[in-house]
């Protein structure tokens, strides 16, 4: 496997040998689904019934969609604090997610976790935790199991640019390369760790993918707001992982629209400029993909409206269920703590 920089892998090139109409629609559906779920959270959060932190990925939907579309059933994914999109794109349980955010008994973690602790093992979403970096080696452990058992699964670990500064990130790259683990690192570089910009955290001119390359890991760098490009890169990377070439690494440039934690915009507090935000906003991964569907497939408004209506109905139903669900029994027992 040679190290490939796919920065130039634009939609046109990808289309030439790749995504059929069905896939193009699938990518859009996944992104719209994530967007609508999170916008629902935005709308309802002020009710103060979702009593846990929420880290929204609005503006960053393309990596989750493009990567998930490159996986096959049985493959696995893990994530960190900003995991809604990664979870949803694996077709993980929406009812369980909303119930979990509302702290209800049928939550995917039975109300023990909240928004930052999503899990749906049946769908291969092995878990997300909010200690930045911590799931990186745990995902490597899952890939290690696959390696030991030869089960053919690929495990995806989603991480941010900030997570690339943790010790375990570097340690895990080394181990994954050493053992040729079927592990795909997907680094969503959204330029910030909370309010801290890249220039106070990482050396200028050194891409995060460069760290992976230094460990002998094959890398792809590209536009994280272009779902087709992401799918293309992820497809190549997943194939390499599955073929036994060892871990692969994607660095995807993207941008978080809303505040680090919570439902609001925070461009006014002074850590980033409105101009920067507007530049990225204009690169909306959904608007862009919608235009592609219109241009390439002649998709009409009715088709988009039908899709949105279907997804919205599903989301509304999940919210209603979660709101109506019972809270967990309010006492804990040793059985909660030990298997």
């Amino acid at each position: 496997m040679t190290s490939a920089s796919a920065a130039s892998a634009g939609s046109a090139a990808a289309l030439a040998n790749g995504p059929d109409p069905e896939l193009l629609w699938r990518l859009y559906r996944l992104m719209l689904y994530v967007r609508l779920v999170e916008e629902k959270i935005v709308a309802l959060y002020p009710e103060q019934q979702m009593r846990c932190p929420v880290h929204l990925s609005i503006g960053q939907e393309a990596p989750a969609a493009g990567v998930a579309a490159a996986l096959r059933p049985g493959d696995q994914a893990m994530s960190g604090h900003r995991s809604h999109g990664h979870y949803l794109a694996m077709d993980a349980d929406l009812d369980g997610m909303f119930a979990e955010i509302y702290g209800k008994a049928p939550g995917c973690a039975r109300g023990r976790g909240g928004s930052m602790h999503l899990i749906d093992r049946a769908k291969g979403f092995l878990g997300a935790v909010p200690i930045v970096g911590s799931t990186i080696p745990i995902a490597a452990g899952a890939a290690f199991t696959s390696k030991l058992r030869g089960d053919g699964k690929v495990t995806v670990i989603y991480l941010g640019d900030g997570a690339a500064e943790t010790g375990v990130f570097h340690e895990t790259l080394n181990f994954a390369a050493l053992k040729k683990l079927p592990l795909l690192f997907v680094c969503e570089n959204n330029l910030y760790s909370v309010y801290s910009p890249m220039e106070v955290r990482q050396p200028l001119g050194r891409p995060i993918a460069g760290i992976a390359r230094a460990h002998g890991v094959a890398t792809w760098e590209g536009d994280g707001n272009d779902a087709v490009a992401v799918w293309q890169m992820a497809s190549e990377a997943v194939e390499a992982c599955r073929a036994g070439h060892g871990p692969a690494f994607l660095e995807l440039a993207t941008y978080r629209w809303r505040e680090h934690c919570g439902p609001n915009f925070d461009n006014d507090i002074g850590y980033r400029t409105v101009e920067e935000y507007e530049t990225w906003r204009a690169r909306d991964p959904l608007a862009r993909h919608k235009a592609l569907l219109q241009d390439r497939l002649g998709a009409d408004d009715a088709a988009f409206a039908a899709l949105e209506g279907e997804l919205q109905a599903r989301i509304d139903a999940a919210v209603a269920k979660a709101k109506a669900a019972a809270f967990p029994v309010d006492t804990l027992s040793p059985e909660d703590c030990y298997a």
């Binding site: 696995q76 092995l126 878990g127 911590s134 799931t135 990186i136 080696p137 745990i138 995902a139 490597a140 452990g141 899952a142 890939a143 290690f144 199991t145 696959s146 030991l148 058992r149 010790g167 375990v168 340690e171 895990t172 080394n174 181990f175 050493l178």
Partner: peptide
């Protein structure tokens, strides 16, 4: 044997433990 990376390797052990090892 393992790399001299106790934290990550503990994570690897956790990750393999939750997937059947």
């Amino acid at each position: 044997d393992m790399p001299l990376s106790e934290n990550a390797m503990t994570g690897v052990a956790v990750g393999s433990a939750i997937t059947g090892m």
